[in-house]
Amino acid sequence: MKVLIMSDSHGLTHEISMITDRHKEEVATMIHCGDSELESKDPLMKGFLAVRGNCDYDATYPDDAVEDIGGKRFFLTHGHLYNIKMTLMNLSYKSEEIGADIICFGHSHAAGSELIDGKLFINPGSIRQPRGQKEKTYAILDIGSDQLEIIYYDLEGKIVEELSRAYRID
């Protein structure tokens, strides 16, 4: 099962549409980790599990969400309420409380993934203003029976090899 994950699009519309159209046939779920700066009723957000970022003014977005997808428990948040620019510890504690396997967040605009104590932390980066690399990125997580593979893409749909990884799971 595949899950598309993006964050920090900051008002972009054409790019969200392009990414959605490119992958809609291959993914079962789409996640936006906040700072879309679009109304939750915007047609571009249809089909997304989305949370509220610090630049989102639509209060109908939840601050956090917990979803069971592909046999895994996901914790979705933007990250600003958990001080993610300083540490992942607060997210780690929260994920422990709710029994999350996969934690998706944004806010820092820095793409990356890390397996910590059996939990996969994923930041898809930003499709508008990346930090730490030149590519504007989003990610697709492929949930397999014995591994989680996270593949990062640039806006043109090319794989960003240096960010993409596979993690073995039990």
Score class of each variant (00 low, 15 high):
L163Y: 04
M18R: 15
A139N: 09
L91M: 09
D68F: 05
S145L: 12
R165N: 13
L141E: 01
S40K: 13
D21P: 11
R131F: 01
G125R: 07
L163Q: 07
Y93N: 05
L12M: 08
D68C: 09
H14M: 13
D35W: 07
H107N: 13
Y167F: 15
P124D: 00
C55P: 11
E26H: 10
H10F: 06
L120D: 08
I116E: 13
Q147H: 15
L120W: 00
P43K: 05
T20A: 14
I103T: 07
G34K: 01
K85N: 05
E114G: 02
V27E: 02
D63E: 11
G99A: 12
L38S: 06
S17A: 14
H78I: 01
F121T: 01
I143G: 00
E149P: 00
R52C: 05
H32S: 03
D56T: 10
D154H: 05
Y61Q: 11
Q129K: 08
H107S: 12
Q133E: 04
G112Q: 06
D8M: 07
L115W: 00
L91F: 12
L155S: 15
G106P: 00
D56Q: 10
M1F: 09
V160Q: 04
S145E: 15
S145H: 11
G144S: 11
I169Q: 14
Y93V: 09
K134H: 09
L44I: 14
T87F: 00
K119N: 10
G99Y: 11
G47Q: 13
I169S: 14
I98W: 07
H10T: 12
I16V: 12
H14G: 11
Y82Q: 06
I127V: 15
G118A: 14
C104D: 02
A100D: 03
S17L: 15
H78W: 04
F48M: 04
E135D: 14
D154M: 05
Q147T: 12
L76Q: 02
S145I: 12
T60A: 10
R131H: 08
K24N: 13
L120C: 08
E15P: 03
E114S: 13
D68E: 15
K2Q: 10
H23Y: 15
K94H: 07
G79M: 05
D117Y: 02
G157V: 07
S17Q: 15
L163K: 06
G132C: 09
D63I: 05
Q147F: 13
I102V: 15
H80M: 09
R73D: 12
Y93I: 03
V51Q: 00
Y138K: 06
I102R: 01
T87G: 02
I150V: 15
E96V: 06
E149R: 12
C55G: 07
I151A: 07
Y57P: 02
H14T: 09
G70W: 05
P43W: 03
I31W: 00
